[in-house]
Structures are given as C-alpha cells and as structure tokens.
C-alpha cells in the first residue's frame, strides 16, 4: 500500500484502569509500546500515534474488558481475574495452586493452550476482542498478615483479602475470603476489615503494606496469569498486516518481559519488607503438602463447571498439568488425576 515511501500514521488508544504504579503499566509504556514502534520503524511504512490512557482516564480497573469490547480503547490489559463470569477459561492457574512459581512458564503455557483450544480466543471474540497474549505479573502468591501465621490452624476466623478464585485456596480452614481491589488493602488491613491478604511481594513492598501487615507466610502458593492483552476486534481488523504482525510479536516479548520483571522484583521486595521490620516465616514442605491436600479440588470444580457450559475444561486442565509435569515443576497435588 505504501509505494510512495511515505509513512502512514495510525492512531491507537491503549487503556488500563491501573496507573503507572503498577509494574505491567510501566512496562506497557516503557517496553511494549517502544517494542512495537521499533519494529514499525524498521520498515518505515507505518507509525502509531499512541494515546496512552492509563490510570482510569477512560476506564476503571474492572472496565477494561467492556472498554475494549465497545471500542473505547483499541488495545489494553484486561485483568481477567475480575471476570470469572465472562472469562472462566483464563482462571486455570487460579484453579491449580502449588504447581509452579515460574510466571514465564505459566504465561507461555497458557498461550500454548490458546493455540490448542479455540475456546480461549472465542471467549474474547464473543466480547469483541482479539486475544494477543496473556500476562503473569507475579512470581507467587504468599500470605501477608497482621499477626503471625505459621500453620493452617492460624487461619481460623481470619478475614483474608484477595482478588478472585484464589480465595478458594483458603476454603475449609475457617477463614473468610474477601474480594477487593489492590488499592484498598492498606486501609482495610489497618482498620481490621482484613486480617491478612493473599498477594505477591512486589505489590506489598510497592504499597508499603508491610507497615500494616508485617508478617509474611512464605508458602509459595503459585504463580498465575491474571492479565490478558487484547485488542478491540474492529480496530484490529482495520490494521495493516504488517502492524498486526509487529504488535503480536511485541506482545509476546512484553509477556516474557513481565514474567522476568515479576521474578526480578520478588527477591528485592522480600528484602525491603524485611528491612522495614517484616517477619518472614517460610512454610516447610510438610506444611505446604498438608495445605494442598486439605483444600478442595478447585481445579476439578472449575473444569466441571466449564464442561457444563460445553467448554473443554477437563482437556485444558490435563494439557496444562502435562506441560507443568514435562517442565519438571515441583507439583504437590496432581489436580487433574483425582
């Protein structure tokens, strides 16, 4: 289309409800967008003029999904964990704790599933979006609390905050899961609305939550892919092939970069928590095994509920676990084989 050698400018709006305080938004701006721009600059046929609307400028954190569906943004980061009703397939890592703490592996595996099971991309297509990749932005969930927690019995009567299906990891231990947004935890911990939170060290250190929840139970519950990078389907269709290709390639680089950053930040964050008076208790393997075996089989429940809707829950679960086994992950409970 570009015979005259002129550069065609394309307008794109990138959205997320989260601000640059969040690692994945910083990397979207500092890594993803430059990666796309660089690829396009190599041929010089196209240039994207970005409107970077983060931090709730156009949509709130739960509104990215409908914002990309309705075309308020062209590309963005959907926090899939908020949409258990619309994106149940995306919850697979939340249904399989104690399997892996390698965010890169989780994200790559899920992209593998997306290639193998059309239902994943179809779910986004149903909501007017093109699935590009997914993102694992945390190394592993841990427990951060106001009072020391070292064993399962300590959860009795506690209110534990987290985002989604992972609240079920505490079922059966007498704790109440309270779903809420990351940004409200500090105050909720301080006021006792919450006694503990299930989060990852980078977000706890970044928001100084160790001030109100100094105790850490390092149980390595597992890494998850809570994000999906998608584009509005109509905007996507209008993009020239070269631009689509550049965005897809950069998205995969962005996915791997997020995983890398999640791991890189974890160690430093634990150090920061410790330096600020945090007390870290590492749960021994026996404790982790007990935990994994005593919780309900969330994975089976998840798969069964999908099968009821005519979605390949069981096959996806097996495929996911097979990949994890092939990658020699320290799996405590074989969720698919019960």
């Amino acid at each position: 289309t570009n015979t005259a050698g002129a550069t065609e400018t394309i307008k794109m709006t990138a959205i997320d409800g989260y601000s640059t305080k969040s690692m994945w938004v910083r990397e979207f701006i500092g890594f993803f967008i430059p990666a796309i721009d660089k690829k396009l600059a190599a041929t010089g046929n196209y240039k994207i003029q970005w409107n970077q609307a983060f931090g709730g400028q156009i949509v709130k954190v739960r509104g990215v999904m409908s914002g990309l569906q309705k075309g308020l943004g062209d590309i963005g980061v959907v926090t899939a964990v908020f949409h258990g009703d619309k994106l149940p397939l995306q919850q697979i890592a939340f249904a399989t704790p104690f399997v892996t703490t390698d965010p890169g592996l989780v994200a790559r595996t899920f992209d593998g599933l997306a290639g193998k099971f059309p239902a994943i991309k179809q779910a986004f297509a149903k909501f007017g979006q093109v699935y590009l990749t997914n993102g694992a932005v945390l190394d592993s969930y841990q427990i951060f609390s106001k009072k020391s927690i070292t064993k399962l019995g300590d959860f009795q009567g506690l209110k534990v905050g987290s985002a989604g299906l992972n609240l079920r990891w505490l079922q059966g231990f007498g704790a109440a899961g309270v779903s809420g947004s990351l940004v409200t935890y500090y105050n909720k911990l301080k006021t006792g609305v919450l006694d503990a939170i299930m989060l990852w060290p980078e977000s706890v250190a970044g928001r100084k939550m160790y001030e109100v929840a100094p105790y850490v139970l390092k149980a390595n519950l597992g890494s998850v892919n809570s994000k999906a990078i998608t584009a509005n389907a109509k905007s996507w269709k209008k993009l020239p092939g070269e631009v689509q290709k550049a965005i897809r390639a950069a998205a995969v680089e962005y996915r791997d970069r997020l995983a890398e950053q999640a791991l890189a930040k974890a160690a430093g964050s634990f150090a920061k928590i410790k330096a600020n008076g945090g007390k870290i208790h590492t749960m021994d393997q026996a404790g982790r095994v007990e935990w994994a075996n005593k919780m309900p089989n969330v994975a089976k429940g998840w798969a069964a509920s999908l099968e009821k809707k005519g979605l390949p829950g069981n096959a996806m679960l097996t495929s996911y676990m097979d990949t994890m086994r092939a990658a020699k992950q320290p799996i405590i409970r074989q969720w698919d084989k019960e």
Binding site: V59, K60, G63, S66, K70, G71, L72, T184
Partner: peptide, 24 residues
C-alpha cells in the same frame, strides 16, 4: 473523535454502570 456513534453511546453507558459501583 472516533467517527463512530456506537463508541459514543458506549462511553455513556459504561460511565453509568461503572463509575459509582465502588465501596467508597
């Protein structure tokens, strides 16, 4: 801006359903 009336409608309905449904 978007030369698309559906997106303009969506902006209004999204704001109506998404703005105040926060605990605070």
């Amino acid at each position: 801006i978007r030369d698309n009336v559906d997106i303009a409608v969506a902006l209004l309905s999204e704001s109506v359903s998404d703005t105040i449904s926060a605990l605070t």
